[in-house]
Amino acid sequence: MTDISSWLEKPIPARAGVGLKPEHFAAILETLPDIGWFEVHAENYMGAGGPPHHYLSRIREHYPLSVHGVGLSIGGEGRLDTDHLARVKKVVDRYQPGLFSEHLAWSSHDDVFYNDLLPLPYNEETLATVVAHIDQVQDAIGRQMLLENPATYVVYKSSDMEEVDFLREVVARTGCGLLLDVNNVFVAGTNHDYSPQAYLDAFPMEHVGEIHLAGHAESVDDAGKAVLIDAHDRALVDQVWALFERVVSKGVRVPTLIEWDNDVPEWERLFEEAKKADKILEAAHRDVAIAV
């Protein structure tokens, strides 16, 4: 039996981590790289047993872990699937992650699961629903969760709140924290013609418990305007690195994840991206030390 008490003593450091992919299980266990932590999707560890649990348990013995849910449909108007919530709780209980996060999005409607993060309008009605859902999740798993800002491609006419104000209000009413996805800010800013910098300047950084960084795909709409797609299939663009530096310069030092879920590269390539994020965090620490 694995002794989980040692896991609890390893909170997630304010360093870079990466999304754990099965392609990298062997390389990680062989080389035990100097990386801060790993994140997994809860839904990938919901089987009864087998290799996924085998490898994650071994990696968990060496590294702090974060669990990221992609299927709770917190932004959906219907009830949460309590069976799925129980499965999420089981993963959280089993692996005792340092952080648990989910999305401001919906993925199920009636009895169909769409396997994508779909957008919701921002208004008083949806706010009440999201707040109730987050209360329910936090009660079930017995801890604070982080809520992630989405990458979106369309706008609802029935929205009458800014996304940042919506998130701020959710935090105030539920006590949850926020997962700031910097790539999503860049993607949504481009897609809706607003300034990512202004979005970040308005973001309640004091509630950010984790950062996500990822690559995106580029497209255009019928009007010939750029549309970015949150694809997680390549390296970050320089503009997203610059936005990350802007966040760090605001004093935010939190666990920072590189997400690369499709066209997954060799371990060394992914590790390079993590080291780049670590350098930015370290430089900020040094600057603070000099200032003191």
């Binding site: 089987g47 709770l72 499965r87 199920s108 009895d111 169909v112 699961f113 396997n115």
Partner: peptide, 8 residues
């Protein structure tokens, strides 16, 4: 279509 988020 899938009937739950348990895509396994």
């Amino acid at each position: 279509p899938p009937k739950s988020a348990l895509t396994l």
